[in-house]
């Protein structure tokens, strides 16, 4: 999974997708996640970074992570080569 080439993300959480013309706001944790995905980190690395930084348990993170991933995929912010897996 990678952030599509047409998507630009500002440091204050504004996301613009020039392919669809849609723009979005992401909250700070959403922005952090998006940036980590853009940097190519895998799920386990991102999870460990979040668990270390935030007052959070692993199951809550996992639920929220995959919900967020599904949403940004729906908005065509990311593209997946393999629809069954997140790598």
């Amino acid at each position: 999974m990678k952030i599509t080439d047409e998507v630009r993300i500002s440091d204050n959480g504004f996301v613009f997708n020039s392919r669809t013309g849609d723009s979005f706001n992401v909250n700070p944790t959403g922005l952090e996640l998006t940036k980590l995905i853009a940097q190519g980190h895998d799920f386990d690395t991102i999870k460990n970074m979040f668990l270390e930084k935030y007052d959070l348990d692993d199951l809550t993170f996992e639920k929220d992570f995959y919900e967020f991933i599904a949403l940004i995929k729906h908005h065509q912010i990311t593209s997946h080569e393999d629809p069954l897996d997140f790598k």
Binding site: S23, N25, V26, T29, K53, D64, F68
Partner: peptide
């Protein structure tokens, strides 16, 4: 001390 966690969220902007 760990930071307070907010569920990641994204909302579409419906300008106009």
């Amino acid at each position: 001390e760990k930071l307070k966690y907010d569920k990641p969220s994204i909302s579409k902007i419906n300008a106009g």
